[in-house]
């Protein structure tokens, strides 16, 4: 398994968090760490760590397509020592 760290910039909409969580789950990524904060009335940022056997592009490309995600960067990808228990 690989752990990927991503950083997102978002429009601050009431449902934006649900959209991101749904895409991550549906595309096969387990969220292991998450931090979101509003940077203004209309914007927010989010740091996300996900665990998956799938290539991170599958997630980042789909997150980039979300209308309320203005930027999505993959910061790092690291191999985990053990297989994560699901």
């Amino acid at each position: 398994m690989m752990i990927h760290a991503l950083e997102l910039e978002l429009h601050q909409r009431p449902e934006v968090l649900e959209r991101i969580l749904r895409v991550a789950r549906h595309r096969g990524f387990k969220i292991i760490k998450m931090n979101m904060r509003s940077t203004s009335d209309v914007d927010a940022t989010m740091e996300l760590e996900v665990d998956s056997e799938r290539t991170v592009d599958l997630l980042s490309n789909q997150l980039t397509k979300l209308v309320d995600v203005t930027q999505c960067r993959v910061l790092s990808s690291t191999q985990t020592a053990q297989t994560a228990s699901l």
Partner: peptide, 14 residues
Amino acid sequence: VLGMSLAVTKHSFM
């Protein structure tokens, strides 16, 4: 409806 729409639309608004 907004919650319901997430998986079946390109985008949605309330």
